[in-house]
Structure formats: C-alpha cells, structure tokens
Amino acid sequence: MRIGKQDQTYTAIATSDAESITVRGQDLCSELIGKIDFTDYFWMLVLGERPSATQRRMMDACLVAIAEHGLVPSVQAARMTLAAGPDAWQGAMAAGLLGMGSVVAGSSEVAAQFLQSVLDKAEEGGTDLETAAIACLEAVKAAGQKAPGLGHPQHSSGDPRANVLLALSDEIGNSGRYVEALRLLGKHASRIIGRPLPINVSGAIPATILDAGFPLQAIKAVPLLARTAGLSAHLYEESLRSIGFIMSNVADQAITYDGPVSARNRAKGGA
C-alpha cells in the first residue's frame, strides 16, 4: 500500500446519483437486489465480476467451514463486551473482529503467504513443487517457527473441516497448484518437524480459495466475513441468555496473582 501523496482519485466499486445506485457496473435496485445471492455479491464486490459456479461453491463451503468455532477468545471478548454494554452491538462485534489475529482466524492469511512462498520458491529455483515444499518446511524448522496451515491441538489425526474442503475442491475440479502445495507440505511436515502436523482448515481455506482465483491480498476477508456471522449468533444469544459476566468471573477465579505483596498484606501475613 502506498504511503504519502495520493494522486489516484478513483474507485471502481460503487457510485450513485439522484436516480440510481451503481455497484461494480450494475444497477443495485434493478440488477442485484433479489437477483444475486450474498456469496456471489461478496465475490463481485471484491473482484468486480460474478464468480463461476465452481468459485461460488468453493467460497460458500469455506465460509460455512469457518463461521463458527465455539467460545474462542474473540467470541468471549465479544460476549463480555456486550454484557458490559448491552446497547453496543457494534462495539461487541468490533471487539470480536479485532481479536482475530495470526493465531485465530487470521491464520488463513499466514498460511496463504506460506503457500505462495512454496510456489515462488519452486518458480525462482526452477525446481519441482515437492522439493520447494520440503525446503520451506526445513526453513521453518530451522527458524523454530510453526508451519502455517498445518497441525491442530484437538484433531491430531486430521482436521475434518480441511478434509471435506479439499475433497470438495477435488470433486468440483477446483484443485490446482495451491492445493498441491498444501498436500505436499502435509505429506512431509510430520517427518521434518518431528510431530503430527495434519493439514488444518486454516491451510485448506486459502489453498482452495486461491486455486479458485480469489486474490491473496484479500484472503483475510474470508474468515472475517464468516466469523461476523458466527459473532452475530453469539451476540444474539448473549442478549437473551447472558454468560459474559460468568466467563469473566471464571477467568478471575482461574488466574492466580503472583505480583508484589502490598505492605498491608505483608503485615497481615506476619500477624
């Protein structure tokens, strides 16, 4: 992204006048509302054209796969925020989205970049994809880093969501170089890193969506959009059956203070 003087005063996404609203070259009221589903619209908004049937199905599947993930930290943050400010849905939603970093949900973007590095290494080195994948895994191990898109604390024998997404990608003829690179990483990761590292959903999402033609620079939008739906469910439930302060109290009880002792408490202890 360019920093400094801006000289391109244009947008190709939307415009409006007194009679119409135009989005990506189509009239919102006569051509889009009621005539396009949201996945198609999302794709069109980002890329400027409607997806093919294969692209739509792959994006739909990825959005469904990542929308809900239980009471992860970002969801807890959102629910506790709403409990503290019941009128601030937008603040609670923002709290949940701001908590989506490189470990939770944003991990798809990190995995996408790792997959791209495998493809770049193969191209730049004039080597095959498997050799490049092995080299990238060895580099990750040497640096003491985690292998993006691989491993799961609960599904050590294989992430079922990833398995379904990859199988669907194969079935609809979507799988290409990114899925191939991911599978090669999954093939060699456990041996090189020295522990079980199955392909996880954070690897399957970017692999399948990149093969579908979605841009790497916008990959993070996929889990963000999906988790917004999941957060909506949690915030609605929170407004009906609040557990925000319960979670806060449990956290307070679970954590032990090990900082300096005050003079008053030292005196108590000596009494």
Rank of each mutant, 00 (worst) to 15 (best):
M59F: 06
M59C: 09
D60H: 08
D60V: 13
A61D: 07
A61R: 00
A61F: 03
L63F: 03
L63P: 06
L63W: 00
V64G: 00
V64A: 09
V64H: 01
V64P: 02
V64Q: 02
V64N: 01
I66V: 15
I66W: 06
I66Q: 01
I66A: 03
I66L: 11
I66M: 06
A67T: 12
A67F: 15
A67G: 07
A67W: 10
E68V: 12
H69P: 04
H69G: 03
H69W: 07
H69E: 07
H69F: 09
H69T: 02
G70V: 03
G70D: 11
G70K: 09
G70N: 07
G70L: 04
L71V: 10
L71D: 08
L71C: 11
V72E: 13
V72L: 14
V72I: 12
P73I: 08
P73F: 05
S74P: 01
S74Y: 05
S74H: 00
S74C: 13
V75Q: 00
Q76C: 09
Q76Y: 04
Q76M: 13
Q76T: 08
A77N: 08
A77V: 02
A77M: 09
A78E: 08
R79E: 09
R79S: 00
M80A: 09
M80C: 13
M80E: 04
L82W: 12
L82C: 11
A83V: 00
A83R: 02
A83Y: 06
A83E: 02
A83N: 05
A84Y: 10
A84W: 05
A84L: 12
G85S: 13
G85A: 15
G85D: 13
G85N: 12
P86N: 04
P86E: 10
D87Y: 11
A88G: 14
A88W: 15
A88P: 08
W89K: 10
W89Q: 15
W89V: 15
Q90T: 15
Q90R: 10
G91S: 13
G91E: 07
G91I: 00
G91R: 10
G91C: 05
A92G: 06
A92D: 05
A92L: 06
M93Y: 10
M93L: 14
A94V: 03
A94C: 11
A95W: 06
A95D: 01
A95K: 01
A95N: 07
G96Q: 00
L97A: 04
L97H: 08
L97E: 05
L97R: 04
L98A: 06
L98K: 06
L98G: 03
G99A: 09
G99K: 13
M100E: 09
M100I: 02
M100A: 09
G101A: 12
S102G: 11
S102W: 12
S102M: 11
S102E: 15
S102R: 12
S102Y: 13
V103I: 15
V103F: 14
V104Q: 10
V104P: 00
V104T: 14
V104A: 15
V104C: 14
A105V: 14
A105P: 01
A105S: 13
A105F: 08
A105R: 11
G106T: 04
G106P: 07
G106M: 05
G106W: 00
S107C: 06
S107P: 00
S108K: 07
S108R: 04
S108H: 11
S108M: 14
E109K: 10
E109N: 10
V110Q: 11
V110K: 10
A111E: 07
A111H: 09
A111T: 11
A112N: 08
A112E: 12
A112M: 05
A112L: 03
A112G: 14
